[in-house]
C-alpha cells in the first residue's frame, strides 16, 4: 500500500465516522420536524411513518395559536399560552445572557489585567457550576417565596446570571488573555484613555470570543428547565416549561403538538447560530490573534 492510498483511506475513514456522527446528531431534529407534521393518528403507529403524507400544519396551529382542533384535548390545551411563553423566554434568556456576559467580561478584564481575582477565587467561581442545580432549587424557592421574587422576571434572571457567570468569566477571560498587554500599552502611550483603549482596541479584538460566549450562555438560559419549573408559576413560565406540559398522566402524550412547539423553540437558536457562525468558528478555535 503506497503512502498515498493510506492517506486516502485514512481520510475516507474520517469522513465515514463524521457522517455517522452527523446522522446521530441530525436524526432527532429530523424526527422532531416530521412528528410535528403528522396527524394525531400517526403519532404512535408502528412501523413508524417516516415522512407524513399528507402532512398537516394542525399541530402548529394548536401549539402556537392555541386553536382547539380536537376537543378530546381541551383540558390540556387550556393551560397553553404559547406566545406569552415565547415572550417570557426571550426577555428572561436575553436579559440574563447579556447581563451575565457583560458582568463576566468586566470581571475577566480585571482578573486578566489587574489580577483582582486570585487563582483560587477563579476556581471557586467555576465550582459554582459544579453544584447540582436541584440542591439549590428548593432553598432558592423558599427564599424567593419569602422576599417575593417567586414567579418574577427578576427572580429567574438573577438565578440565571449567577449560574452562568462562571462560563462568562472563564470564556471571556481566555479571550482577553490572548490580547497582548503591549497592544494596550501601545495605545496608552499614544495618549488613549483606558476607556478608549478598551472600546477601540480590546473589544474589537475579542469580539468573536464574546459572540461565542453570548451564544453559549444563550443556549444555557434558553433551554434551562429545572429552575424555570421550580421558580415560576403561570405568570412567567418559559418555553421549556411549556414544552413539558404536553406530556401528562391525564392528557396522554401529545407528541405532534409537543414537537410543533419544540421546532419553534429550536429554530431561533439555529437561526442565531447560523447568523453568527463565522464568529463561532473563530471564537471557539481560540486562535484569532495568532500572527
Amino acid at each position: 500500500m503506497t503512502r498515498r492510498t493510506r492517506r486516502r483511506l485514512a481520510s475516507s475513514g474520517r469522513y465515514a465516522v463524521l457522517c455517522l456522527w452527523l446522522l446521530v446528531v441530525v436524526f432527532p431534529l429530523f424526527w422532531s420536524v416530521m412528528t410535528s407534521l403528522k396527524p394525531a393518528a400517526e403519532w404512535f403507529t408502528w412501523p413508524p411513518t417516516w415522512i407524513p403524507d399528507p402532512f398537516t400544519l394542525n399541530n402548529y396551529r394548536v401549539a402556537w395559536l392555541g386553536e382547539l382542533l380536537d376537543t378530546q384535548y381541551v383540558q390540556s390545551a387550556s393551560v397553553q399560552t404559547p406566545f406569552r411563553a415565547l415572550a417570557n423566554s426571550i426577555v428572561i434568556a436575553g436579559t440574563s445572557t447579556i447581563l451575565s456576559v457583560t458582568l463576566g467580561m468586566l470581571l475577566a478584564y480585571g482578573a486578566s489585567r489587574y489580577g483582582i481575582l486570585s487563582e483560587t477565587a477563579l476556581f471557586r467561581f467555576l465550582m459554582l457550576r459544579m453544584i447540582p442545580p436541584i440542591v439549590v432549587a428548593v432553598p432558592v424557592l423558599l427564599y424567593y417565596s419569602t422576599i417575593g421574587l417567586l414567579d418574577s422576571y427578576l427572580g429567574l434572571i438573577t438565578i440565571y446570571v449567577v449560574s452562568t457567570l462562571p462560563y462568562s468569566l472563564w470564556m471571556t477571560k481566555s479571550f482577553i488573555d490572548e490580547v497582548p498587554i503591549e497592544v494596550e500599552h501601545a495605545a496608552e502611550l499614544l495618549g488613549a484613555s483606558r476607556a478608549r483603549t478598551i472600546r477601540e482596541i480590546v473589544l474589537p479584538l475579542i469580539r468573536s470570543g464574546v459572540v461565542a460566549t453570548l451564544m453559549f450562555v444563550l443556549i444555557l438560559t434558553w433551554s434551562e428547565y429545572l429552575m424555570a419549573l421550580t421558580l415560576s408559576a403561570t405568570h412567567i413560565s418559559t418555553l421549556p416549561v411549556q414544552l413539558s406540559k404536553y406530556e401528562g398522566s391525564t392528557e396522554g402524550r401529545l407528541y405532534g403538538w409537543q414537537q410543533a412547539m419544540s421546532v419553534g423553540v429550536t429554530l431561533p437558536l439555529i437561526a442565531v447560530g447560523y447568523a453568527i457562525h463565522r464568529h463561532l468558528v473563530r471564537g471557539f478555535s481560540f486562535g484569532m490573534l495568532k500572527r
Binding site: 503591549e182 501601545a186 495605545a187 496608552e188 502611550l189 499614544l190 488613549a192 484613555s193 474589537p204 479584538l205
Partner: peptide, 28 residues
C-alpha cells in the same frame, strides 16, 4: 504614561491587529 510625551516601540511591536496600517498610524 499618556502624559509623559514619550513614544515607545515594543519588542513584539504591538501593532493593532484589527486596524489597517493607516489606522494604526492615525490612532495616536
Amino acid at each position: 504614561p499618556s502624559r509623559r510625551n514619550l513614544g515607545m516601540v515594543f519588542q513584539n511591536l504591538a501593532l493593532f491587529p484589527h486596524k489597517t496600517v493607516y489606522e494604526n498610524i492615525a490612532f495616536g
